[in-house]
């Protein structure tokens, strides 16, 4: 075997590592490029604000946008307060005992359950057992359980980044634990918690499997009136028109994908910038 010059071998390995990195970030670039290039022509105000026509082969995606919005907002309203409270419990109150260990294990495993299994569970318990029917609320409940571990983990990191000395200073002035959390810890952890929440919203907006049998419908001719209505959502709509409808014009599929992508990327960028901004302007 030829013994390579160590310096040369280093250069060669760096090249390989660089190529691997290129391979890892190429898909995201390619996906964005392909979708923008093919979808930009159909996306206009009318596409965004009109109902689908002619078996969805024409018209817009307005009901899917409204439906996505309804489900995502209901989900985050359910999961954010609960998740933040759970994070507060774990970070500020929990002692190192069996229960805490069980909770941590629960979070890890909740995070690992496949989304379609959440769909099964949500269908069984919310749609059937609690008789909520296929509805926004059933879908939102299912998604909020799925998103709970993510919210807990990001919020916990945010709470944990607030220096312990702030808590001690507050306690030493006779302020109670909850008051300290409410007025010192939470305000300082808020940027981190919000960043996590925005990323969660982005993630929920793109979910399909958990709401497949709990909230969505193939086609709904009107906008949702209440929490107990079925809805169309963007990702599910994209799935339908790209697999279930023959002779579907590609431009509409790309247009739908583009709208979904822009929504999600915008939120991700906002979250990233908020994170960078607050890291730079941190008060401590």
């Amino acid at each position: 075997m030829i013994k390579l010059n160590p310096k040369l071998s280093q250069k060669f390995s760096y090249l390989i590592l660089f190529l691997a990195t290129a391979l890892a970030i190429m898909p995201i670039m390619a996906i964005i490029f392909i979708i923008v290039k093919n979808g930009i022509s159909v996306v206009n105000w009318e596409f965004l604000t009109s109902m689908p026509k002619n078996g969805m082969r024409e018209g817009g995606i307005f009901p899917a946008i409204v439906g996505t919005f309804a489900i995502v907002m209901s989900t985050i309203m359910l999961t954010l307060p609960t998740g933040v409270c759970a994070a507060i419990y774990l970070n500020e109150y929990a002692r190192d005992n069996m229960l805490t260990r069980a909770i941590k294990l629960g979070i890890v495993n909740l995070a690992g359950i496949p989304s379609v299994v959440y769909g099964l569970f949500g269908f069984g318990i919310f749609v059937m057992f609690l008789k909520l029917g296929v509805s926004i609320i059933a879908g939102a409940l299912t998604l909020s359980i799925m998103e709970l571990p993510v919210i807990i983990t990001t919020s916990r990191n945010a709470l944990n980044s607030v220096p312990y000395s702030f808590r001690e200073a507050s306690w030493s002035l006779g302020v109670s634990r909850w008051q300290t959390i409410r007025h010192i810890v939470l305000p300082n952890a808020l940027p981190g918690i919000m960043t996590g929440a925005v990323l969660s919203i982005a993630r929920i907006s793109g979910e399909t499997a958990p709401i497949l049998f709990t909230a969505v419908a193939f086609y709904v001719p009107h906008l949702p009136h209440s929490m107990f209505d079925q809805v169309m959502t963007l990702p599910y709509h994209l799935y339908i028109i790209s697999t279930q409808i023959p002779n579907m014009p590609n431009s509409i599929i790309f247009g739908t994908a583009l709208v979904l992508l822009v929504m999600i990327l915008t939120m991700s960028f906002i979250a990233i910038f908020v994170r960078i901004y607050f890291r730079k302007h941190r008060k401590w």
Partner: peptide
């Protein structure tokens, strides 16, 4: 405390 601990 030993170190100054002003609140932010």
């Amino acid at each position: 405390f030993a170190m100054p601990t002003p609140l932010p």
